[in-house]
């Protein structure tokens, strides 16, 4: 099989399009590059969706944690503590077992006038179940980051807002929120990188890779198992992830310049990337 044919057969293998059988012997470099790259689609899927949904949840959590009312504050504090204090790996296992325990075929929800059958089976699939875990996890981590930023907003800014007669929603939207986002952005970039790295855990926890549609690390370890040679698939994976990280840094850097556009050049916050890999 030539390389072009390999790409045609396996480029979308991870989402179920193309050849069904994975190559079994005589692995070429091209096959490894294509399959690991196709697995990367899942990493991007998990990362992007969890970040998008998690962003809003994180802001809510941060606001709740900063709230003066303790009935609002305590749940947010516990949420952050539980998701930041325990390993993601255990969270995946726990979530998977919970979803499996839910009745297999769905249960009937009686709404009085009509009955709805709630299908719960899809939760045990990685695309939904793992996404929920990652979403909650990133919401907790980012919530803590935003909470920290919320507390470091300069006092003068808020006083100025009061002096100009801002209050309530307008004050939040025009002053608090943009400043918080600006202060939190460098750490949030790290969190994003970190989340993309964490997506590799999905298929190594409880969630099974259905029909061998796995993520990049799943295929890389498949090759390493079959060839007993770790020196080819893992560096390929590493290369892909470095590219992905560079993309994330690029995109977040653009947002960062936009958030800081009103500041004089020398006071702008530089994006310092210090990824911490494990959560």
């Amino acid at each position: 099989m030539s390389c072009v044919e390999t790409i045609q057969a396996y480029a979308l293998r991870s989402i179920g399009i193309g050849e069904r059988l994975l190559p079994r012997s005589d692995f070429t470099l091209c096959e490894q590059f294509t399959l690991i790259g196709s697995g990367l689609l899942w990493n991007i899927y998990f990362g992007v969706l969890a970040l998008c949904f998690g962003f809003f949840m994180a802001i809510t959590v941060a606001m709740a944690k900063a709230a003066p009312n303790r009935w609002v504050r305590k749940p947010a504090e516990w949420f952050i503590f539980i998701f930041r204090g325990s390993p993601l790996f255990i969270q995946f296992f726990l979530a998977y077992e919970t979803f499996v325990m839910l009745p297999k075929l769905g249960f009937d929800l009686n709404l009085g006038f009509t009955e709805i059958t709630v299908e719960t089976r899809w939760l045990t699939r990685a695309w939904a179940g793992a996404l929920i875990v990652l979403f909650l996890n990133t919401a907790a981590y980012a919530g803590e980051i935003f909470y920290g930023a919320l507390r470091t907003i300069p006092k003068g800014d808020m006083e100025a807002a009061d002096a100009y007669g801002f209050s309530g929603w307008t004050k939040f939207r025009k002053i608090t929120f943009p400043t918080m986002l600006r202060l939190a952005w460098p750490s949030y970039t790290n969190e994003a990188i970190f989340l993309f790295h964490a997506t590799t855990l999905v298929y190594f926890s409880g969630f099974p890779a259905w029909q061998q549609r796995g993520d990049a690390l799943y295929y890389a370890s498949y090759f390493a198992d079959k060839t007993f040679n770790p020196f080819i698939p893992y560096p390929i994976l590493a290369g892909y992830f470095i590219l992905l990280t560079l993309c994330v840094i690029g995109i977040f850097g653009l947002v960062n310049t936009r958030l800081n556009r009103h500041l004089p050049q020398e006071r702008r916050q530089k994006l310092r990337v210090r990824p911490q890999v494990i959560r």
Partner: peptide
């Protein structure tokens, strides 16, 4: 630089076989 840029779990899987070999 290298260890920090790549998912740790990939390293865990890699080093176990690589060191053994």
């Amino acid at each position: 630089a290298v260890v920090r840029g790549v998912p740790d779990i990939a390293f865990f899987l890699f080093f176990v076989i690589a060191l053994d070999q």
